[in-house]
Design a protein around this nucleic acid. Structure first.
Lengths: 115, 115
DNA sequence: AGTATCTACAACCATTTGGTTATACGTTAC
DNA sequence: GTAACGTATAACCAAATGGTTGTAGATACT
């Protein structure tokens, strides 16, 4: 079952942009390991709670994390499916490269396993 | 031979940031297929040559493309190695997730192949 | 009820980004 | 030599980003 994640340019923009910040990448790491409240996250970074809250919002907007109310907390959970989606995006470039190699081989009339 | 691409936060920032723009992603695609001069690239986007030149500079700064002088042209070439480096970055998150699963299994005292 | 905690959000600010036009320089063509 | 082409870069501008403080709403604690 190929889900065919047809992502818009805007969605892809958001995913990579969200990944382009060390604090946000750290939040992803931590929340992939275990669900963590926003204030718990904020406690370990050298910036205001509001700043961390914004980072979480950026990650949420990109689908890289989800938030789950738990009492007065909002627990943040890393979304491995979104990570895989990003991986597939990069795989596409890798594939373009491999296809190119295949085409060059064809030009050189030098048959080779194309997998 | 594991090269152990020890990337700094800044370098990782630049890579994902460079990927967070549709025009730049298109330039990567095109230059992975074949080396292309900056003006040739610029000809197909609805923006000035200078804007495209800047996009190429951003990609170059992230290591995603390289430029090669050829007469008065600068030919842009996609760098598949940098793409793979980005893939490895995402793989690391995937791995964190998989490790988590392993740990949960351990908690549940439900042994399973840990690869 | 009253207080402390967790969160969201607005307003603000400095810096960066993504675009523009204009200028300058090296290379090719005539 | 001069004109045309390919490129880089500076100066400029609007919008987005990443931070701040302050305010206010829910929820939990006593």
């Amino acid at each position: 079952m190929v889900v065919d994640t047809e992502l818009t340019d805007d969605e892809v923009d958001r995913i990579f942009r969200a990944l382009a910040d060390a604090t946000r990448r750290d939040i992803i790491r931590r929340t992939l390991v275990e669900e963590t409240s926003v204030s718990e996250l904020a406690g370990t970074y050298d910036m205001s709670f509001a700043a961390v809250s914004k980072h979480v919002a950026v990650l949420e907007g990109a689908g890289l994390v989800t938030k789950h109310p738990y009492g007065r907390e909002r627990r943040v959970r890393g979304n491995p499916e979104a990570i895989r989606r990003a991986q597939r995006l990069l795989d596409a470039y890798e594939q373009i490269w491999r296809n190119r190699i295949g085409r060059l081989d064809a030009l050189l009339d030098e048959p080779r396993s194309t997998d």
